[in-house]
């Protein structure tokens, strides 16, 4: 399928999703749906680096935080529309991705992962001590009740924005997968030394992957202050973001764009349902149980079942 046709399909799917949400007509549906969509963006972004090139990034919360806190700063200092804030948050986060990549990509395997984890801790310390964005007390954001020019509630607007970002992220991931760039990423995953020996510009490709992956995570994090209305470092840098974002592609399958979506929908929906019907602590337990189940039964994720 050609890329424009694929994007058309994505838009149709997104329109159906939004139509369904309008049909249900319950604010909670938007709140829950936002989280699932946010995880589609996050896990797709993670998979560009983690799945395609094989570099496991544990620093996800740092990228989300760059997006979220850049929104806090912009909210306090400017009156930019949310879409512009997302673009800025994404750009800053992509820069963090390239910067981290440049400093750490000489490290391979586990060492790279540990470095990204350390990077998240450093970022949390910085944010906690930055008074302008609220420091450890956190920042309050008052969101408008409605979006005048669309005639919808603000939470519906956030849901739509996240739907749009999901389309953007998934379309990008799929386009990469079928391109020279995507095969270049795969050579790094399969055998980095051989990739170098074949003349694949490995450092450049890894920096591109880091930038794209970080950029999308930042974009997913940018609307977060408007969603939660109270943003504090402890919950922004919560380990559950990192755990969920990594678990979803692993459960869905890391080899293709579809895997992170399947994982995010399955795990994200289960967690939302469990949070309402049982308790929010159970939703983390679900991640653990599902991960163990998939590692034993389907180590290549849901996609692995369908491939020979």
């Amino acid at each position: 399928m050609k890329n424009p046709l694929f994007i058309l399909w994505l838009i149709v799917a997104a329109a159906l999703t939004f139509g369904l949400a309008r049909l249900v007509d319950n604010a909670y549906f938007y709140f829950a749906g936002y989280v699932v969509l946010q995880y589609i963006v996050l896990s797709t972004a993670w998979n560009i680096l983690g799945g395609y090139t094989g570099y496991v990034n544990f620093g996800i919360p740092a990228f989300i935080a760059v997006g979220a806190y850049s929104t806090v700063v912009l909210h306090k200092t400017t009156s930019l529309p949310l879409v512009a804030m997302i673009a800025i948050g994404g750009a800053l986060s992509a820069l963090l991705g390239v910067g981290t990549g440049y400093l750490t990509l000489r490290l391979r395997g586990t060492f790279f992962s540990i470095a990204t984890l350390a990077m998240a801790v450093v970022m949390q310390t910085l944010v906690t001590n930055w008074d302008f964005v609220g420091g450890s007390r956190g920042a309050y954001i008052i969101r408008p009740a409605t979006v005048q020019y669309l005639g919808i509630n603000y939470i519906e607007y956030l849901f739509l924005i996240m739907l749009g970002l999901s389309i953007f992220a998934v379309a990008t991931a799929r386009a990469i997968e079928k391109s020279r760039l995507g095969f270049g990423f795969a050579t790094i995953r399969d055998d980095e030394l051989a990739a170098e020996a074949s003349g694949v510009p490995t450092l450049k490709l890894k920096l591109i992957a880091c930038g794209l992956s970080g950029g999308f995570m930042g974009m997913a994090g940018s609307p977060l202050p408007y969603y939660v209305t109270y943003l504090d470092p402890a919950s922004t840098f919560s380990l559950s973001y990192a755990v969920n974002t990594i678990a979803m592609p692993l459960i869905g399958g890391t080899s293709s764009w579809l895997g992170p979506i399947l994982g995010a929908i399955l795990l994200g929906t289960l967690q939302q349902v469990a949070t309402v019907t049982i308790s929010s602590a159970v939703s983390l337990l679900i991640v653990g149980v599902l991960l163990v189940f998939f590692v034993i039964v389907a180590p290549k994720g849901i996609l692995g079942w369908f491939q020979k």
């Binding site: 050579t187 055998d191 990739a195 510009p201 080899s255």
Partner: peptide, 17 residues
């Protein structure tokens, strides 16, 4: 040191980067 999860054709094309 091939790229085991790529096809023969893809391996060869990656040689021409």
């Amino acid at each position: 040191r091939l790229f085991p999860r790529l096809t023969v054709n893809e391996n060869l094309l990656m040689g021409a980067f």
